[in-house]
């Protein structure tokens, strides 16, 4: 593109300088999901199927409206929960925060643990993300002898309302997080819990 006018060359130089880097663990995460049989979001069905599906959905919606009223249209909204500060990584300082994006009360879509570097006691762009995962559980490091497992129970971590969720974090002191998961307590300790 050497024949570009000078003002476009400058713009091109700026665009070439924009380099985004995916998370180093993303590839391993995708392979892990594939090996577990996760096929990702379903693709778009063919047109005829969409028309048939739409007709069926309209019929069901009509029926639903007549029976349940407008409440049938409500679905859990996305909620974000920001809880700071605890010592999640076992480093000794309560300077770690937890950021969760979930469908209220049902499904955790994002979970991130950050170090509250600016002391704002909430997530800001200045903070350092130590751990992030999407819907599926993931393990970011081999478990080492020094790992510290901490359970926090019970708070409303999924935005559903009741304080019925627990958080499990495996930290590698002083500042690494190997794993984090949220689950819903369904009864007294010892009973099976449901992973979010």
């Amino acid at each position: 593109m050497s024949a570009l006018p000078e003002d476009l060359q400058d713009l091109e130089r700026r665009l070439v300088g924009v380099q985004f880097e995916p998370r180093a663990s993303l590839g391993a995460e995708i392979l892990g999901r594939f090996q577990r049989g996760d096929t990702g979001a379903p693709g778009r069905p063919p047109f005829w199927l969409r028309v048939r599906g739409l007709a069926a959905v309209l019929a069901l919606v009509g029926l639903g409206l007549s029976v349940f009223g407008l409440f049938a249209l409500r679905s859990p909204a996305l909620a974000s929960v920001d809880r700071c500060c605890h010592d999640f990584d076992g480093g000794g300082d309560a300077d770690d925060g937890l950021l969760i994006l979930s469908r209220a009360g049902t499904e955790v879509r994002r979970l991130a643990i950050y170090e509250d570097r600016d002391g704002s006691r909430s997530f800001t762009p200045a903070d350092l993300i130590r751990f992030a995962r999407s819907g599926g559980p993931s393990l970011h490091a081999q478990l080492l002898p020094g790992a510290i497992t901490t359970e926090f129970c019970c708070l409303d971590y999924d935005g559903g309302g009741p304080d019925d969720d627990a958080l499990l974090v495996v930290g590698l002191p002083p500042d690494r997080i190997a794993m984090a998961a949220i689950y819903e307590r369904r009864g007294p300790p010892g009973l099976p819990a449901e992973l979010r």
Partner: peptide, 18 residues
Amino acid sequence: GADAAEDVTSETFLKAFQ
């Protein structure tokens, strides 16, 4: 954002692998 790009990258490769 990075989250959206990660989601669609994952979706792309899961579909490709499948």
